[in-house]
Computed example of a mutant assay.
Amino acid sequence: MIAIIIPYYKPTYFKITLDSLANQSVKRFKVYIGNDASPSGPESLLEGYLNKFDFVYKKFENNLGQKSLVKQWERCIALSANEEWMMLLGDDDYLSANYIEEFYKQIEEIKSSKVNVVRFATQVEKMDIEPPKVFTHPKMELSTDSFYRNIFQSSRSSLSEHLFKRSAYMKHGFRDFPLAWGADDFAWLDFTEFNNIYTINEAVARIRISSESISRKGYLENQKREAKYACFSLIINGYIEKFKKEQHYSLYRYYENLVYSSNNISFRFWLLLSKFYLLNKDILKFFKFQRRIFVYKYVRPYQNIKNNFLFYLLF
């Protein structure tokens, strides 16, 4: 069986989510809905689905998502039973009618592949943009390659289109980054233990980006930046050797830019990247890095002071 776990807060598109579950061609799943003390509860809406699929509903008395989305995910997962496979479905995302059917069609191959994470094709639905592109993936792909492609925008990834084994979740859990930003991406590395993800491209998860979505541009960008920095600090300092050698330079440069944008320049950071360039015998890149450090650490603050001084003189 599959546990479909929905951390609920927003009512706007929730009926579409529920309809997509009611319309599944195979009903071998159970739904667990955890209401994060939303001011707009779904109780009356859920009454219409009592005989359409099996579900458990729980209203939590305190809002946890504002403090930690990961903690809200965890208490919603705790509602579930002992299903071997789980997924966390957004309350505004929805599934193609063959979603569960395709999983069971390929279950023997999934078992023989010994994977802990299964993902589906996706469509991202944004306001005033259609028709959305369908994102597909290699049938089998290292989670590190998937992470790399996602970071450098030749792919995409989100929480809703993934199924994962309960045993992998119980062993590793989700990293509690701010806004849970990147927590799912890191989970696929942890849950697979840096091994393969299995993909089902024959069914589609439809991911909605709206004016209510955390994913929308311009929303809490400082916290997202903080989360990206925390995520990449772990990658660079603890897991870089899990990635292919030819991916290292791009990952280090991405991390470097996050350090600058987060104003987290430190001696340890300087030593880490200096060592990387020297060990790779790339003297030119080493000196370019020293120049960048000098500019960001000393020249740019001076330029800001100078600009402010001119501003007061002129105005």
Rank of each mutant, 00 (worst) to 15 (best):
K165L: 13
D184L: 05
S158L: 10
D176E: 11
A183I: 03
L179Y: 09
F186I: 06
R175C: 05
H162W: 05
A187V: 05
R175Q: 08
F164P: 11
L179F: 08
K171D: 10
S160C: 14
S157Q: 12
S157F: 11
F174I: 07
S160T: 14
N195I: 14
L159E: 01
S160Y: 02
N195T: 13
E161D: 14
E161A: 15
H172S: 08
M170H: 15
N195F: 14
L163F: 11
H172Y: 11
S157H: 06
R166N: 06
H162G: 14
F194P: 00
D185M: 15
D176T: 07
G182R: 00
G182V: 02
S158G: 12
D190I: 02
L179W: 03
S158D: 14
S157I: 09
H172R: 12
T192E: 05
N195A: 13
A180N: 04
S160W: 00
E193T: 15
R166V: 08
F177P: 01
L159W: 05
E193L: 11
M170K: 15
G173F: 04
H172Q: 11
H172P: 06
F191W: 00
P178C: 03
W188P: 00
F186H: 01
F186R: 00
Y169G: 07
S158K: 09
W188I: 13
L159V: 12
A187N: 04
R166D: 07
L189W: 08
L189R: 03
W181G: 00
W181Q: 01
R156N: 13
P178I: 06
H172K: 12
L179V: 02
W181E: 00
S157K: 03
L179T: 01
